[in-house]
Design a protein around this nucleic acid. Sequence first.
DNA 1: CTGAAAGCGCTTACAG
DNA 2: CTGAAAGCGCTTACAG
Lengths: 352, 352
Amino acid sequence: MVTIGDIARAAGVSRSTASYALSGKRSISAEVRQRVAEAARELGYTPNAGARALATSETMVIGLLAQFHEDEFAPAMLQYMLGVSDTARELGYDTLLVTEADGARALRRITSSRMVDGVVLLNVAQDDARLPLLRSAPQPGALVGLPGDCSGVDVFDFDFEAAGRLMVDHMHRLQHRKLILVSQPEHVVQRGGAYVWRLQNAVVEQARARGIELHAVFGESRQPEVGRTLHALLDAHPTATGLLLNNEAAAAALPSVLHARGLETPRDLSVIGRYSDEFARTFSLPFTSIESAPDLLGEMAVRQLVRRIVTPQARGDEPHVLRLLTPELVDRGSTGLPPATPSNTCVQGGIQ
Amino acid sequence: MVTIGDIARAAGVSRSTASYALSGKRSISAEVRQRVAEAARELGYTPNAGARALATSETMVIGLLAQFHEDEFAPAMLQYMLGVSDTARELGYDTLLVTEADGARALRRITSSRMVDGVVLLNVAQDDARLPLLRSAPQPGALVGLPGDCSGVDVFDFDFEAAGRLMVDHMHRLQHRKLILVSQPEHVVQRGGAYVWRLQNAVVEQARARGIELHAVFGESRQPEVGRTLHALLDAHPTATGLLLNNEAAAAALPSVLHARGLETPRDLSVIGRYSDEFARTFSLPFTSIESAPDLLGEMAVRQLVRRIVTPQARGDEPHVLRLLTPELVDRGSTGLPPATPSNTCVQGGIQ
DNA sequence: CTGAAAGCGCTTACAG
DNA sequence: CTGAAAGCGCTTACAG
């Protein structure tokens, strides 16, 4: 391989001069700079990343710890990953993707071996096993997902509480008095997926404050189970006029369920989901929804992480960030006034 | 940070002895090995990856070049990525994920700077701009996707021709005589997505050979456009009795379309898709399909890549591999004999 | 069985 | 403005 020594020889200068000429870190005569640049171009020189990392203690790589659980909706994770990866590249960093099941072990491996300059954790749980390791790691870390203890890390998440209140208030304003909430599977909660109960608790509380009757359940993450759950819910609560979905799989299943029951939104039922616009477009979800902005969250996490990496004083001194994204409603026309005689099962009876 | 020098000092041996004791690359007295291991454990030693890479010329990282195009179905890509990443880890490698639009530039960056020991290219096009660079790179490469020129690389792909023939023959055996094929968007073809026309050509040819009337179209990659296309197709060809889908978005949209038209498989229409089982489960696709096995393809590519990396003689000498995965039909009960009086629009007429 | 030394390819104080 | 040298933290022939 062609090294900086080859460049130096070809340009007739020392290796240090060649290095400085290339990096521009000290003033070099125009002529020498010229010769070095030409030599580098002709020989096709690229600095060896490992050698540079050893000399500078900077790898220009960030670690991306994704976690895929059987009972979570995998395609949603991809959007976070792309937000992270694209932003990292924009800022001059490459991305080491880690998908192994034992995230704590993986985190230890890549941080203690200095493979990365910093780390983004995705899908952070309430009591995430990766966090103690991250805090004691020499590199800074940014989280997507709100853990119970935010100390020592920068945290970015969607404001699920506000989203829950927004859902209820929107329905309340439209005079709905009986709602159903379908959350992610209960397993996700048990594993510490705080976002599930953060939204659910907010919905429960706000419904109580508004005098709204609410039926909250955990839905499955898979078809056709979640479709059956939706059918069962609509059967059990024929007078519910609004459906709130914090469950991508349920949102994807709902169009078929509504078709099968002969229901239309918002005529027979008002629906609000919570997912990304990208998700809505891919699966043609015609429901008003709260944008979860996964790419933006990934981007914000990386920008803050790189700030910490490049500014030494931001390392420990600067207070850590906790940023919750304010939810916004994307109106796709699936909410309206409740029907005069609410019954979301009548049509189904007619068909069968 | 704690280095091998610290370990050596703590164990009272030389750095080389410490290194050998840890790697086991030469015989070390049991007692010294013990002391070194203990020192490493107590001090929490992990070798510096950059230093090791510099010394050994091995990074233990493979590059994963993904490509996301606006008109392709992103969630499908994730499964390839996970197949690659999980297998790499199993074999002791980490994965550098590259998602930037200019894949050729990215490939040059990570190979010429020696950030990776080898590279997996996803979504390879007929005349892929990344291939010339890969051939001249010092690291070996494995492709997922069949290019026009396979020289110098190991290639893994699904046998789309065989899949096309399988689809037609299956329908032919069931006595279907008029079929519709919905492929991926035409843009994908224009960009060199050979898999689209490989399947389509095979379907066209096999249909001709079997005396089957075939209508082949390119579908969109998005909802609701692709749903409208499906409706239009069924309107235009009311006597078609079988539908072949080489388009994930169309497959995801079809259940709603069938519902809307009051059609049932296989009673009114026989359907065969081509996607992964994972995809089918996530979106509850009740269609008989040809398994595209993205995770398996990713896995095979990595295994072969690592073979090339670790066995020097396999570097250039050993002939390159071209492996096309034989398609298999997963019967989900959506195909059967055609209806006596085929008309996939009658019910729609009745409803409207 | 073990140690001293060279070398991987960079960067960057230190001198001039 | 430029060069010689040290050093980053490893591994591995070379000697004993």
